[in-house]
Each structure stands twice: as C-alpha cells, then as structure tokens.
Write a protein that binds this DNA or RNA. Structure first.
Lengths: 114, 114
DNA sequence: ATCAACAGTTCCGAATTTCTGAACTACGGA
DNA sequence: TCCGTAGTTCAGAAATTCGGAACTGTTGAT
C-alpha cells in the first residue's frame, strides 16, 4: 500500500474538482462527508442509494476525491478516516463547493445527510 | 442533420453541468461564449490555446455544452450561433456558474475573454 | 507466534467512453 | 448547377472506467 497522495492547496485544479463531483455517487459521498464534523470511514458509508457500491469502486471514489483535493484521508489503525477540505477549498475557490452541494441538494431524492 | 436538442430548464442536471465544464477546453469555450453579448459561431473560435482543436471535436464539445443545458445553439443560415443560458442557469443553480468561471479564472494562463 | 477477521488497496480483463480523420449534409452565392 | 464554407455524423483506435478476485496491513484472539 503506497502512501496516500494529497495535493497541496495551490496545486488543486478546478477541472479535477468538477470532474470528481460530476459523478453523482462521488458527490453523494462528498456531501455525506461534509455533513460530518470529524472524519468518517469508508465502510461506515454502507449504501448510498438502492445500489450497493462494490468496495473496489468505493476505494476508487475515495481516491479520486482525495487526489482532486476534495478530501483528506488518514489511516487510523485498521480503518481510514476521511474528512473534507472545505475550509481550505473555499479560500482557494470561493463559493464553489457550496454552490455545487446546493445544486445537488436542489434535486429531489438526493443523499440524506446522515 | 437531426434537430438540436436542448433540455428544458427543469431537466438540467448538476452532474451534466459539472461534467461538461470539467474539461478545460470546454470550460474555455464556455467562458469565451459567456464573455460575448450575443451569439458566437463555432468557427469564430479559432484556437483556444496552443492546440488546434479538430472540428469534429469542436462539434462534439458544443454538443456536450448544449445537451448539458449550458448553451443555446441556433442555426442561422450557413452558421450556428451559440450563446450561454447563464441567466436561466443562475436561477436554477444559484451562484454555480459564476463560481466555476471564477475558479478557472483564478489560474494563470487561462483563456482570454476575446 | 500463529491465525482469523476486517478495512481498504491493487490488479487486470471487460465494457464503456472519448477522440478525431474522413465522409457527409446543409446552406448560400456565382 | 457547381463550388466553398459551416458544421455534423460515422467508425475505428485509444483511453478510461468498472468491478471481481487476490492481496496488504492491522487488530485481536488463541
């Protein structure tokens, strides 16, 4: 298991953010994380809709979120704690994250916050 | 040439917007269009960076932008006039488009407005 | 120390998507 | 009618995504 890569704030690219959040499943994961005060684990996620997400896909979703700069992942014993980088991100791209989450939120039948 | 499809405002999906604008080339085209008062043609675009975009790719970019709901295309004689749907979009997804354009704008060496 | 269970990652082949040159359609002018 | 221009469609190659199976690393039990 190679060490996890997190881009520095100044290396975060808008296209990576948009790409990462253009997948509704990933956006739902991100929304769910951003509703949590502190870190959440990958497996605590369970199901996000009707579909059960295979764990290799889940792992990949987290990787995309992490490498785009949206989240911070930290191994803690057996599990991985994930949290958003919202505060930093808002500094670099003002209003972006909020507008995106709001856009998804507008729609009926979207992910529950918890 | 089949008729052009444009989604109704209420059918526009956030994931489609994010996806469309997650390609820097498309985002640059959109930014360029949004800097224009009235419609602009596809070929008026010329080059957008160092790379010359093949016309089939360009055509596809415009199609993605159109079908995601970002732009309105209208055939006018021999050419196609394109304009953004910014006003409508801002009503549906407040602040989203502006935040995205700003995010791209933050970066050095991005598309010139004209 | 050895073993088993668990959380998550990596690998790799299949399926899907993207890209773009070439052929094509549509319109306008000479 | 024939030509040039604007843009679209087609089709095959290249790249990306998806997900099952095998693997890594950690903890706790025996």
């Amino acid at each position: 298991m190679r060490p996890l890569f997190h881009p520095a704030l100044e290396d975060i690219r808008p296209e990576a953010i948009l790409y990462a959040l253009s997948d509704p499943e990933r956006a739902a994961i991100f929304a769910w994380l951003s509703g949590a005060g502190c870190g959440r684990t990958c497996s605590a996620l369970g199901q996000l809709g009707e579909r059960v997400i295979p764990k290799s896909s889940l792992s990949n979703h987290f990787k995309v979120l992490r490498e785009s700069g949206l989240i911070l992942s930290e191994r803690q014993g057996i599990e991985m704690r994930n949290q958003t980088r919202c505060a930093e991100l808002d500094e670099r791209f003002p209003g972006l994250i909020k507008a995106i989450l709001t856009a998804y939120g507008e729609l009926p039948g979207q992910p529950k916050a918890d």
